[in-house]
């Protein structure tokens, strides 16, 4: 599903991450690592937000460097602490993402309804609490027809009821549409949710399987 080729990410002269040759099969993955180990850097690099040396190839032939548009259409991302323009309403942000990611008409409605966001989705983002903002960023990450969804710290900030809904989205998308997931988190994924997630560890400036 994802293939790292001579991946190197530097911050100044400091090597933050080095992944020479590493392949990840389709599935759901929990990315572990201590604070500052580079989990967010890894996810932002895969999402095409941060610059890096080397290449990342999706599904064997879609390179982030050589087919940046096709790659970005298939890889979605939700930030750990999202920051969006305060003057936009949640719905305007949804429309912006739906248009950019070529989402089927009305796709957002099921996500908005199941997360119970109808009461504030038309309010300016400047009025949102951090939990509401987090839920919005999660909805945005599910729009379109992605092959891989990257969720940076999705388990923090939102309430337990919403967390269960998020788990159900992940399970459904993986089962019905074959979408792969990479979730970074300090806490273990809930075993009761039966996600059957593989585990990746970011440590010593590189990435490795632990399960």
């Amino acid at each position: 599903m994802l293939h790292f080729i001579k991946f190197k990410k530097f911050y100044g002269n400091f090597p933050a991450l080095t992944i020479d040759d590493f392949a990840i099969e389709p599935g759901i993955y929990w990315i572990k690592g201590v604070n500052g180990s580079g989990k967010s850097t890894l996810l932002k690099s895969i999402a095409g937000i941060l610059a890096f040396d080397g290449d990342i190839v999706l599904d064997g032939n879609i390179s982030i460097k050589k087919q940046p548009v096709a790659y970005r259409r298939l890889v979605n991302f939700a930030e750990a602490e999202p920051l969006f323009p305060e003057f936009l309403t949640g719905m305007e942000m949804v429309k912006l993402f739906a248009s950019a990611k070529d989402a089927p008409a009305g796709q957002e409605q099921q996500f908005i309804t199941s997360m119970k966001m109808q009461s504030y989705i038309d309010r300016p983002i400047g009025t949102y609490s951090s939990g509401m903002l987090k839920k919005l960023s999660l909805v945005l990450a599910f729009l379109g027809k992605p092959k891989l969804i990257l969720l940076d710290e999705p388990l923090i900030t939102i309430d337990t009821e919403s967390l269960k809904i998020l788990y159900s989205w992940i399970r459904d998308q993986h089962r019905d549409n074959g979408v792969s997931f990479m979730l970074s988190s300090h806490q273990a994924l809930d075993v009761d949710e039966h996600l059957d997630a593989g585990e990746l560890l970011v440590d010593a400036q590189t990435l490795q399987f632990t399960r």
Binding site: I49, P68, V69, R72, N76, E79, L83, P85, A100, S137
Partner: peptide, 17 residues
């Protein structure tokens, strides 16, 4: 600055240069 602070996520959009 606005692009980097508030629209960072849009670098993930499939827009051509």
């Amino acid at each position: 600055r606005f692009g980097l602070v508030y629209l960072l996520i849009t670098r993930n959009f499939p827009y051509s240069l």
